[in-house]
Every structure is written in C-alpha cells, then in structure tokens.
Write a protein that binds this DNA or RNA. Structure first.
Lengths: 179, 179
DNA sequence: ACCAAGGTATCACGATCGTTTTACCTTCGG
DNA sequence: CCGAAGGTAAAACGATCGTGATACCTTGGT
C-alpha cells in the first residue's frame, strides 16, 4: 500500500531535481504530486516540509541502493542510479545551496545523508582492505562526490575514472605492483 | 578604474553564493550592488544577464588564480580559494541546477567554465608526467570536483585527501615500485 | 443509514517577484 | 554655461509566490 504522503513525495522529487527548489512554485508541485494543494499542505505542512520529506525519502532510497561492500559495486550502482534517476549533481548539496541555512529541517536532512555517505565509504574501505582507514575513506568520499558532480557533464567516463582511481588507491595500499 | 559594471558584479557575487540564485530578489541584489535598480538593469539587462555576468567574472578570476602547473599548487590554490571565498560547492553546478536549462546565457557561462577546468587538468597532467594522458586528466578532474563538493562539509581534510590521492595516481604511473 | 475521514476543485489573501517608469540630480567636455 | 551622459530614489506594473479558506464529493465501518 502506498500512502498519500508517499505518492506526493514520489511525484515531486523529479520536479525538484529538474528545476531546483526555490525556482518551482507550489502550483507545479501540486500538479506533479497528483493531489490537491489542500491535501499536500495537510501532509507536508509547508514547502520547506515537503523539501525535507523529499530529501529524507531520497536518502532512504539511496541507502537501500548503495548497500554495497566493494568498490566495484559502489560505482556500478552509481552508474545505474545515473541511468534511472539522471545526473544533475548531488541534490542534497543543491538543496543546501539554495536555502542557505535558513531551513533547519533541510539542514538536518542533508547532514543525515552526509553521515550515511561517510559511513558507507568507511564500510567499503574496511571490507576491501580488512581494516579501518580514515584517510582512504576520505579519498573514496571525494572520488564519489567528484563522480557525482562530474558525471553531470562528463557522463560515464567520470564514473569510470573515479572507479579506476579508487581501485588504484586500494591496490597501491595492498602492495600490488604496476601491471 | 573600476567600471560600474564591475562594481555591480563584485557586490552581487557573494549574495548569489550565499543564498542561491532563484532565492534572492532584485531588491537584495540592488542593495548589494551599491547602485540603483535602474542602473543595474541598464548594465545587465535582466536578472539572468546579471547571473551570467557574475559567472563569467568568476570564471575569469578562477582562471587567473588557478594558473598552476603542479598537483601541489592546484590543491594549495584550492585551499586558499576556500579560505578567502568560502566553500559552498561549485557555484556553476549550482547555477545550472537552479535554472534547469532555461537560460542559454547561464548554460554558456557554465560550459565555458567547464572547458577551462578540463584544460587546466590536462595541462597539469601533461606537466607532471611529460605526456598527455586523458584518463589521468579525467581522474584529476573528478578529484578536483570531489574536493570542491566535499570541502563544503568536510573542510580541509577533503582537500588533503584529494591531494594525496592525486599524488598517488601520478606517482603510480611513473613506474615507482613499492618500497 | 449514516457520519466521520479524507479526498477534490477553486478562489482569495497579502507578500514578493522581475521589470519599467517617472522625475530629479550631478558631473564634465566643448 | 550648457547639454548630454549617467547616476539617484521611489513608485508602480502585472504576475506569481506560499498559504489558507470555502464548499462539495466519495468512501468504509458500525
């Protein structure tokens, strides 16, 4: 069973992704949500509440999709995410950039996502190397963020480059000699 | 001599960077520009024209600041850029995300910047390795984009991680054997 | 049979949006 | 000394913003 709330979120997320947050009005959002504006406000409270709810839902979907343990799977998942969802740069970064810090609920949604992302990188590094390595996790985070940003205009080759770089960094650590 | 146009651009850039593009009104921009709204419109034509002019000016300033030939200088320059200009994610990516593709002048300004960025990465790779290497240049681009995005919430350690990763990738290429 | 729950469509609100206009300075080369 | 050139402040434009209100319709459980 999909709740009304879920339908609203699912319908509006793509609009935000395509046109930004401040740039779309409630009229377009109500139209995309498939419900009346009265129902939308009853469920979401405000436009800011809707944005936070969309970001929370996206984080959960991201969390399920990126439940991976290897570098290989990480970038393969990123590629298929880009295929199905498009690649317009990190929606969380963009949400924060449009709102300043003026909306605490948005702020919280973004940092929730970022915590999750960091933990995912640390988990992959630990699984790949057999130990925790904060530096390597930070590097993998940077590569993932970079691939997310660069793939919006470089396409698949940005993902491939990040993937290859990550493998080199992991491999270099494990004493592999240059082929 | 600074022209009126330059003063307008210099005054408004920080406002866009802090609050986004669609989210700020012309009243705040005229106040920040230091000129009347009539003068602002005479020089910029429209809000979109102002945005494109601000992005063009930023690209030129970026071009001068990042006139570097080494990995070392690249990330040192990024760190001092972040210190003086702040780190809120790539302003060009954000501009594109807020406007969809609806404004051709903004679109053009963003791709001008991206061309410049790619050429800078290729130039650094060529200087560091002595030959052109498209794959390595792509990896450096991803690392730079990733550092730009990640430093907005990870701070300096994101830059350091990208720097170290770039050095590893360059070093590995040049035939260094482990220990 | 009925009533609450939750949906719809539509309109109106005050505010703010981007833009233009009106009317009035100031400065400076000829 | 005069007349462009280029500036100012302030008001107003229709449109659109986020939000609430009004009135009506459809359900499903008791």
């Amino acid at each position: 069973m999909t709740t009304t709330r879920e339908r609203i979120i699912a319908g509006t997320e793509a609009v935000f992704d395509e046109h930004g947050f401040a740039g779309v009005g409630m009229d377009r959002l109500t139209e995309a949500s498939g419900v009346s504006s009265r129902t939308l406000y009853k469920h979401m409270g405000s436009k800011t509440g809707l944005i936070a709810a969309v970001l929370d839902a996206r984080r959960e979907r991201f969390d399920q999709a990126f439940d991976v343990l290897t570098i290989e799977d990480l970038f393969a998942t990123l590629a298929s995410w880009a295929d199905t969802e498009g690649a317009r740069g990190c929606l969380f970064l963009r949400a924060l950039g449009e709102d300043g810090r003026s909306a605490p609920e948005v702020d919280r949604a973004v940092s929730d996502y970022r915590d999750l992302l960091q933990r995912a990188m640390a988990r992959i590094v630990e699984h790949e190397t057999g130990r925790t390595d904060a530096v390597l996790a930070e590097q993998l985070l940077v590569l993932f963020e970079g691939a997310t940003a660069a793939m919006s205009y470089r396409g698949r080759q940005a993902i491939d480059a990040a993937h290859a770089a990550a493998k080199s960094l992991i491999g270099g650590l494990m004493g592999a000699t240059p082929s």
